Amino acid sequence: AMEMGLACVVCRQMMVASGNQLVECQECHNLYHRDCHKPQVTDKEANDPRLVWYCARCT
């Protein structure tokens, strides 16, 4: 999947907007926009540098 680069696995886009940054699952290393992931990634989750985030598939 490395050839995908830094794109969201849901929408396949790399564009990021304020409040909709890409977050990386620490287990599978897929990237998700906060708005694309279900459930939506919260501000607290996205902005906490100590948080280890896992996508819905890996939790």
Results as ranks from 00 to 15, higher is better:
residue 1 A to G: 07
residue 1 A to D: 15
residue 1 A to I: 10
residue 2 M to T: 15
residue 2 M to C: 07
residue 2 M to Q: 09
residue 2 M to G: 12
residue 2 M to Y: 06
residue 3 E to S: 10
residue 3 E to C: 05
residue 4 M to H: 14
residue 4 M to Y: 05
residue 6 L to D: 15
residue 7 A to E: 09
residue 8 C to F: 00
residue 9 V to A: 10
residue 9 V to Q: 14
residue 10 V to Q: 05
residue 11 C to F: 00
residue 11 C to N: 01
residue 11 C to Y: 00
residue 12 R to E: 12
residue 12 R to T: 09
residue 12 R to N: 12
residue 13 Q to Y: 02
residue 13 Q to N: 11
residue 14 M to Q: 15
residue 15 M to W: 05
residue 16 V to Q: 11
residue 16 V to T: 14
residue 16 V to G: 14
residue 17 A to N: 12
residue 17 A to Y: 08
residue 17 A to F: 04
residue 18 S to E: 12
residue 18 S to T: 13
residue 18 S to V: 07
residue 19 G to A: 10
residue 19 G to Q: 05
residue 21 Q to Y: 07
residue 22 L to I: 10
residue 22 L to K: 12
residue 22 L to H: 12
residue 22 L to T: 08
residue 23 V to N: 04
residue 23 V to A: 05
residue 24 E to A: 06
residue 24 E to R: 07
residue 25 C to D: 01
residue 25 C to W: 00
residue 26 Q to W: 07
residue 26 Q to Y: 11
residue 27 E to Y: 04
residue 27 E to V: 05
residue 28 C to A: 02
residue 28 C to L: 01
residue 28 C to Y: 01
residue 29 H to L: 03
residue 29 H to N: 07
residue 29 H to V: 02
residue 30 N to F: 05
residue 30 N to E: 07
residue 30 N to M: 11
residue 30 N to P: 01
residue 30 N to T: 07
residue 31 L to D: 03
residue 31 L to Y: 14
residue 31 L to N: 13
residue 31 L to C: 14
residue 32 Y to L: 06
residue 33 H to G: 01
residue 33 H to I: 00
residue 34 R to G: 15
residue 34 R to T: 12
residue 35 D to Y: 08
residue 35 D to R: 10
residue 35 D to P: 04
residue 35 D to N: 09
residue 36 C to E: 01
residue 36 C to P: 02
residue 36 C to S: 01
residue 36 C to A: 01
residue 37 H to T: 07
residue 38 K to M: 09
residue 38 K to V: 13
residue 40 Q to P: 11
residue 40 Q to D: 09
residue 42 T to D: 07
residue 42 T to Q: 09
residue 43 D to R: 04
residue 44 K to F: 06
residue 44 K to P: 08
residue 44 K to L: 07
residue 45 E to I: 04
residue 45 E to N: 08
residue 46 A to F: 15
residue 46 A to M: 04
residue 47 N to W: 06
residue 47 N to V: 09
residue 47 N to D: 08
residue 48 D to P: 04
residue 48 D to G: 08
residue 49 P to E: 13
residue 49 P to A: 10
residue 50 R to S: 14
residue 50 R to K: 13
residue 50 R to W: 04
residue 51 L to G: 15
residue 52 V to Q: 07
residue 52 V to I: 07
residue 52 V to H: 10
residue 53 W to T: 06
residue 53 W to I: 03
residue 54 Y to P: 02
residue 55 C to I: 00
residue 56 A to S: 09
residue 56 A to Q: 05
residue 56 A to P: 05
residue 57 R to A: 11
residue 57 R to M: 06
residue 58 C to T: 00
residue 58 C to F: 00
residue 59 T to Y: 04
residue 59 T to M: 04
